[in-house]
Design a protein around this nucleic acid. Sequence first.
DNA 1: GCCGTTTTCGGCCCGACTGTTTTCAGTCG
Length: 573
Amino acid sequence: MPVQNAEIAEMFDHTAELLEIKGDNPFRSRAYRNAARVIERLPKSITGLLKAGEDLSELPGIGKDLAGKIAAIVTTHKFDVLERLKRELPGDLGEIAALPGLGPKRVKLLYDSLGVRTLDDLRRVIQSGRLRDLKGFGLKSEQKLVAALAKPPAERRFKLVEAEAEAEALLAYLRKTKGLAEAVVAGSFRRRRDTVGDLDVLAIARNGAAVGNRLVRYENVAHVVAHGPTRTTIILRSGLQVDLRVVPKASYGAALMYFTGSKAHNIALRGLANDHGWKLNEYGLFDDRRRIAGATENEIYRKLGLAMVPPEMREDRGEVALAATGDLPKLITLGDIRGDLHVHSRWSDGTASIEEMAIAAKARGYAYIAITDHSKHVTIAHGLDSAHLARQLDEIDRVNERLSGFTVLKGAEVDILADGKLDLPDKVLVRLDLIVAAVHYKFDLSRKAQTERIIRAITNPYVSVIAHPTGRLINERVPYEVDMEEIIAAAAEHGCCLELNGDPDRLDLDDIHAHAAKLNGVRLAISSDAHAIGGLGNMRFGVDQARRGWLEAGEVINTRPIAELRMLLKRRH
DNA sequence: GCCGTTTTCGGCCCGACTGTTTTCAGTCG
């Protein structure tokens, strides 16, 4: 089993953590963390890159030294630096450092003076009263730790759609604050990440304390973590953390940028400001003490010699360099979408008729949809057999006769059987405009078998799109084991599209894989997978993730007019 | 440990809040 990128990233993160606790050069541990981020989001496997003879030190944040260390890890499956650190600092210090209020310095102090190596050690020194006598610790620290040890915070990120519901209610409440000019959610929410760790709320008001005071009185607050004049942190009953920051109007752009992040993007911009001899913080861009920009994001980017970077791209994945040369991609927007290619009806497990779905799609400004009900293998969803599907095609003809300026395409979401064959015979498939193929069972095949299974479907000339290619359900089901690099390569070779499923529980492909598909010339279909009229609205989540993958309209097939789309689909069979 | 139009050394983003202290270090984002 070759070493996965995520394993190398994990080793580097762990190394960084132990280096911090040890008190090593902080920039060295930052280098490990940076490298971990670079490796983790790499669209290709490190093992594959090495096999192809690529020079890893070409990657940003990875120099000669780390390149050598990575090569050694791939060979030995071990990282000697980390092994040494673990021997030097035994126990589970990472677990201790994860507790609120405990960082590397205090973990080291606990380790050196009280011999705390595990959570149980920590419990013991609290019980014996030795903790509160330690310099820098007191009653408050002790109480905080007792609470945290009793009920470890659920380390979970919220689906974007869940965060949206919380955000809307909270903003509506905060906007009633007297003297508040603006309140928005920044952070990963604004960058439209598929999951959100906390809500970063930015407000403009003369009297910052008034907004914070209102926030702590919000009915859904479970716990106030911190509460100052310009910054307040609370935990909602749902467990979602909210960080509120209030700034004056002149700083709005700078604060929005700062609070939108990502942290890595901010650090890159601050470095650029430094190059000019300026300073960038959440209050503005400063030449000495004079603010030279700050009211809008646009003006700050411009001063730094950059084009405005869309929030979805602010991940320090090369966007700063592109913004400097004016080569940012023109990201796809919801308005570019002309149709939806994965839609269910009452014929299988949907709740609306074909005509109702078509009319709702037309009302959204679309020119077409494809009805893609399940095939027979998915019995739980009342999948269609050949005869049933044939009757559905007649029904689609009738609906098309009644509609003007709109087309219902004949499709099916056909099951990919365990051996990679399709669940419906070719003589039926040939009558369809498009086939979306998907895995719905036997998620536990080996990586090799699962990859071969899907590639077999890709090579089938009738298959236009592979639906939700990794099968993940966010926070519920991990992706099945599959070699996405090989799948993308096969899709590129056979001209098969991959789906970016906009169902907020799926968002599959994710941003990284969508970007990898783009780099390999694979076209995507962004689809809602709607099972009801309201589900057509999932499209916007799909577009969000496509933007995070740097996709442009031309790389997404359902931005094409119907005639062009038909040409693209026909080319395969 | 990385990086370079300040290039092989000497930098590396910046500020708010807390707790424990009595002027600030540590943590956090």
